[in-house]
Simulated assay, not measured.
Amino acid sequence: MSSAHFKSAAVAAALAAIEAGRPLEKAVLRDAVRALLSELSRSAPGRSVEVRVPPYGAVQCGAGPRHTRGTPPNVVETDPITWVRLATGRLAWSDATADGSVQLSGNRADISGYLPI
């Protein structure tokens, strides 16, 4: 894990639960998702792609044309557990997009170059 992951107790706790097959507390999962989204926005500055992890958060990231209103043209959406696994390198981008765990729209929606965080 990168140093950013060690700074978040929620990310560490979420990974431990996921890897052990234990259910996650909603607050832990929420905090882990938000910490990883925040790190993504820091490591991939910009506003070209919106990454959505309902119901816990969304960020805009990535270089390119800035989006300001309405539905963004470049969107990545996934569930919280998939996001934690993707962001920490426990799941490959290609596998997640192939099996439908991640939904993409727009020609800039491939954020695989920013993962794992």
Rank of each mutant, 00 (worst) to 15 (best):
7 K>E: 15
7 K>Y: 07
8 S>I: 07
8 S>Q: 10
9 A>Q: 13
10 A>Q: 05
10 A>R: 01
11 V>R: 02
12 A>R: 13
12 A>I: 13
12 A>T: 12
13 A>G: 11
14 A>Y: 09
15 L>P: 10
15 L>S: 13
15 L>G: 10
16 A>C: 00
17 A>F: 03
17 A>R: 10
18 I>R: 01
18 I>W: 03
19 E>F: 00
20 A>W: 05
20 A>Q: 08
21 G>C: 05
22 R>P: 00
22 R>T: 10
22 R>W: 01
23 P>G: 10
24 L>V: 08
25 E>R: 14
25 E>K: 07
25 E>C: 00
25 E>M: 01
26 K>W: 01
27 A>H: 02
27 A>F: 07
30 R>I: 08
31 D>N: 13
31 D>M: 00
33 V>T: 06
33 V>L: 10
33 V>W: 06
33 V>G: 08
33 V>Q: 08
34 R>Y: 03
34 R>M: 09
35 A>H: 09
35 A>Y: 03
36 L>S: 08
37 L>G: 06
37 L>K: 06
38 S>W: 09
38 S>N: 13
38 S>H: 14
39 E>R: 11
40 L>K: 06
41 S>R: 13
41 S>L: 05
43 S>E: 12
43 S>M: 11
43 S>R: 15
44 A>Y: 02
44 A>W: 05
46 G>N: 13
46 G>M: 13
47 R>P: 03
47 R>Y: 01
48 S>I: 04
48 S>N: 15
49 V>Q: 07
50 E>I: 02
50 E>H: 02
51 V>A: 05
51 V>G: 01
51 V>R: 06
52 R>N: 10
52 R>E: 08
52 R>A: 12
55 P>R: 13
56 Y>E: 14
